[in-house]
Design a protein around this nucleic acid. Structure first.
Lengths: 160, 160
DNA sequence: GGCAAATAGTGGACAAATGCAACTATTATT
DNA sequence: AATAATAGTTGCATTTGTCCACTATTTGCC
């Protein structure tokens, strides 16, 4: 029960309450915006939508034989979600899966020709999207942001 | 088509390809982690899950009469998603909605007693969650991060 | 050797969120 | 008066995420 004050009809008159000082708010909100933008740029490329397909494709491409569970850790999904993601990408003929010789419960993933092609295609797109999207932040601050987030991320997933 | 090299079986042997230098990757990944953690802390509080409920509740609480479309801008949802969010919160008896007197196509939102109570309850939780979650980042860098993200966010939503 | 626990992956069910497009009502423009 | 813009609603199709139980394989322990 606050005031009977002005009913804000524009974003200018609004303050964000405690969220103003809450990192998680900004991370979550920026995520929405950056993900939407990225999806738009990847439209039609059967790697759009949702987090994980891009990382999975690039990771498999540059680490042939990598296991699903390793990727799952990197993109923070549980094994079941990871499995479905891979199924999907196999359906789209981007990856193949085979059981490991010396660890018969594990799988090894490889890109198909089509997958390799797509990986090569999206690499510059993904990089450019990020650069473009964050271009309204001055470069020095972009670098700071990247540095902090990279270390934070690595610590979080236990990448030493 | 890369090597025939070591098949990475642990996250230690993996590099992130171009994502290593891609801000959007870190934002998207941190988002998953921070959102999961936040959901866990809000478990049972019918404001958990998904982005928007928390912001909506706090915003309506501190800006009585605020319009759905204004909140939608702030949390970057389209009107339809916003509407459904509000329906849900009305069902849970957190908000009430009435049409504006002088703008009969617009709505004004208010918290119920239960909504106000919940707002008061989650404010400290949300703050603490963010602090706790990011506590592995040294304070000075947290401040930098916040400063950059806040300005980035404000610019992005056109908050001047 | 043999049993129990840990690890890798699969499959199903269920609950949500997301995005798109079409539709109503109201207000602003010209 | 006609047209366009704004606020919100509704339906639909697509995804996503989560939880849990289940199989197969490997590892550790006694």
């Amino acid at each position: 029960m606050s005031d009977g004050g002005p009913k804000p009809t524009s974003i200018e008159h609004v303050n964000l309450d405690v969220l103003e000082n809450t990192l998680s708010f900004y991370i979550r909100t920026m995520n929405i915006a950056v993900s939407r933008d990225l999806d738009a740029r990847l439209d039609g490329l059967d790697v759009a939508r949702g987090t994980g397909k891009i990382t999975t494709l690039l990771l498999v491409d540059s680490h042939p034989g990598i296991r699903p569970s390793v990727i799952a850790q990197i993109i923070m999904k549980d094994r079941s979600a990871m499995g479905r993601l891979i199924d999907q990408m196999i359906d789209h003929d981007l990856l193949v899966r085979q059981t490991s010789a010396r660890e018969r419960r594990a799988h090894e993933l490889f890109v198909t020709a089509k997958g390799a092609e797509l990986a090569a295609k999206i690499r510059p797109i993904v990089t450019k999207q990020s650069n473009d999207f964050f271009s309204f932040i001055v470069e020095e601050e972009q670098a700071q942001l990247m540095d902090i987030l990279r270390r934070a991320y690595r610590k979080m997933v236990g990448m030493k």
